[in-house]
Design a protein around this nucleic acid. Sequence first.
RNA 1: UGCCCGAUGGUGUAACUGGCAACACGUCUGAUUUUGGUUCAGAAGAGUCUAGGUUCGAGCCCUAGUCGGGCAACCA
Length: 568
Amino acid sequence: MSGKAPSATKQEASKSPKNFIELRIDEDNKTGRFGGEVHTRFPPEPNGYLHIGHAKSICLNFGLAQKYKGKCNLRFDDTNPVTEEDEYVQSIKNDVRWLGFDWGDSEFFASDYFDQLYALAQKLIKAGKAYVDDQSADEVAAQKGTPTEPGKESPFRNRSVEENLDLFQRMRDGEFNEGSKVLRAKIDMASPNMHMRDPALYRIKKKAHHRTGDKWNIYPMYDFAHGLSDSIEGITHSICTLEFEVHRPLYEWINNQLVDHRPQQIEFARLNLSYTVMSKRKLLELVQQNHVNGWDDPRMPTISGLRRRGYTPRSIRNFAERIGVAKRDGIIDVALLEHSIREDLNKVANRVMGVLDPLKLVITNYPEGETENLTAINNPEDESAGKRELPFGREIYIDRADFMEDPPKKYFRLGPDRLVRLKYAYIVKCTGYEKDDNGNITEIHAEYYPESKSGQDTSGLKVKGTIHWVSVAHAVKAEVRQYDRLFMDEDPAGHKEKDFKEFLNPDSLEVIEKAYLEPSLLKARPGDRFQFERKGYYCVDPDFTTEKPVFNLTVTLRDSWAKIAKKG
RNA sequence: UGCCCGAUGGUGUAACUGGCAACACGUCUGAUUUUGGUUCAGAAGAGUCUAGGUUCGAGCCCUAGUCGGGCAACCA
């Protein structure tokens, strides 16, 4: 009997509603199925880079282990040497670590179990539940039947245990050519579940493996290796995506035949994000056809892309928490991802002045050659971030969008005879402007009110707008890469008749060669994140040098003026 | 013509063993603001795919259907 007040447990439960997997685990804990243990695993195949969808799975698996005080293994599902490479192993480890998860010494490889798996396959053969088939892949496929018609049994299905054992060993020893023989489970060629129609368990591949070298000529298939690896590692809940649902009977069949510890496979819906694609194949296509500049292009939904884009690990974890876990597949609005990063960066990113589309403004009544150092607050959300000095002078750059020749009444910025505050500096009044032959505005003239200085304003003037600026004399020229969504369609891969690449956004990257930033940014280091006041969050790109500073747009600030302007 | 899974506001997720549908994002209003940011206050928006059934009572249970997704790699 516990003396706990029922209200306490109720309150706890209402704090964070449980997802169906947690409910399932609670049930197993209640019945003592796994002795109250919770042991999960994240099992990537090292054949590509991790993306935000994997992040969901990582957060889920490691998160479950944390919640239930269990363990989560990192296991590389490396059973196919033709596509897998060590380079991917390294990038995956790097990404998981970056996301903030620690697998301690629980780092495994399915290839570590090849000997055990081989022995288990022999055991299956001895039990009369597996056989070597001499037919080609095409022949096997032809006999498989269709979802509505049963398959036909292989003529090699009833070989003797001895012959199967001998043949399997010779497969291992490299006596046969690739594709000439395959080890199959002997289950049921008439099963309504296609995966139960004598699935392949081992195939011959005379290819060196990134870890086992040329030791093996045969490699286990996913269905054979995965569940057994789970069992070997003592996994209790083997969480995977929905497409493996139909594999579950096979997963269970294999473990039931061969091992005592039988994990529970649970499937959940993979993540889909609007305005992007998530399949490895499609992402690879974007990279190979140079639609993006590599796997870590900031427009890619890969972990490395998001990292270069300026996303924080915490924002991604929060995102994963917020989207929840269920079996229904849908499409998450990228606005939620963007909200997660804004939420985090708002609290931690220092504010800074950056003019992306420069327009010179000359303060005609300000003394020539004079410089003032003004005090600027680094982060209004975090006093401990301190203050800094900002040089001000007669000539400054402002953003072109902050001036209109003929502004509507709702526009709060600069226009002929209008007043605006230069943030941390003075209030200025536009007294005129110059245009070139094409009618483009080339320069603004203004007069400042000396008594309106920030912090000691005695002018009594009231202005509706405050704009950012950078002193011409002190400006740091930088390259700013403005990123926008990669696709123009909400579900680019969802059109049966059209290739997803038709929806590529031609304006997903705009490189601004000459942006002007405040001088403090020269001290920035790759990975640093800032808020360019009134514009958005930016991070320092790895390409950054003090000779040529480079910044990436992570996400723009919310912009209610854009909404007003849009409405007209 | 088979098997498996799913269906709750615009989007995603909730609703303890049935008890008058909640949270987040988004949208809209207003306040504050030396960021048209943030913050704060508030609003609109679903009656839970359909039809039956069980029940005092159904989003939750049962039946049938509809719609959506998945399954026939020697890929994972």
